[in-house]
Design a protein around this nucleic acid. Structure first.
Lengths: 144, 144
DNA sequence: GTACTATATAGTAGTTAATACTATTTAGCA
DNA sequence: TGCTAAATAGTATTAACTACTATATAGTAC
């Protein structure tokens, strides 16, 4: 294990302890798979990779663990959300804030976000859309 | 129909014509439901509302139509994506670009996006995360 | 107005991502 | 070393979403 990996693993353990999660071999395997790829794998893909290391691990464990990681901030969902698809006619420029508790999506508008700068790194792509998006806890849920 | 609604409807028709889509009563109803709410409804919710106006409309039509609208830019998916959930260990600050053709997610990093400005409108919320995200067609898919 | 044709729809069946359940096991700790 | 709450394996279930097919209709040409 190199310094980077060691450090990552330490941070992972810290996150687990903070949330009173046990450090199980399954969780370690899943975290290592996730932190050693930039492929943004699905639960199914992580499951397949995990089976090679730990042949009896169940899909449920992988999926549940990924959700747990997402809850404690040890992983992020970068595609889909698990929540049902929701639509917007997109009338007028606006951005979205989502409350992670009540799932409410609140529109707001901040002009600078209508046309964000396109980094040079993306010049080789045809950009169709840019989005600025916030997530957190809304005023109503904060009171509870 | 007020001026705004009339104008929206005209733009909607334009979008349909540009994509060779027929203006069906079902599509009109669905578009009107979507453009007269800021609730960001799910397909199921739109379906329930549509049934009140057009009792025989099927869920398939509603769902398919919403997807069609999303394809032609008459609607936007603001939650979930229909694609399977995918994960990222989130190591180091970075942002994502997604190719809408091959679904590949590409990491990039532009420092200004690590801490975007939080608009005053959002001050009453606890913000946990901000995301800047691009969507388009990647270099590989462009060549095809 | 009438007829034609490709497209769209209703109704239903099917798929699959994701979650739930239960008996068993185990991590963390005294 | 033993205890206990938490986690897991294996499987069942759920539900969002898509696919299929016979019928209907929007758009167009006459």
């Amino acid at each position: 294990m190199n310094i980077d990996k060691e450090n990552q693993f330490f941070e992972f353990k810290e996150l687990c302890h903070k949330s009173d999660l046990k450090i199980t071999p399954q969780r370690v395997v899943i975290y290592e798979i996730l932190s050693s790829t930039d492929e943004h794998p699905s639960a199914e893909t992580v499951y397949k990779k995990a089976r090679r290391i730990m042949p009896n691990i169940s899909f449920d464990t992988v999926n549940r663990t990924l959700n747990t990681f997402s809850d404690i901030g040890a992983a992020f969902i970068v595609e889909g959300t698990g929540d049902v698809r929701r639509f917007d006619a997109g009338l007028g420029n606006h951005q979205h804030f989502k409350c992670v508790k009540c799932k409410r999506i609140i529109d707001f508008h901040y002009e600078e976000f209508d046309n964000v700068h396109r980094p040079a790194e993306l010049e080789k792509f045809d950009i169709l859309k840019s989005t600025v998006y916030f997530e957190g806890i809304c005023d109503v849920c904060k009171k509870k």
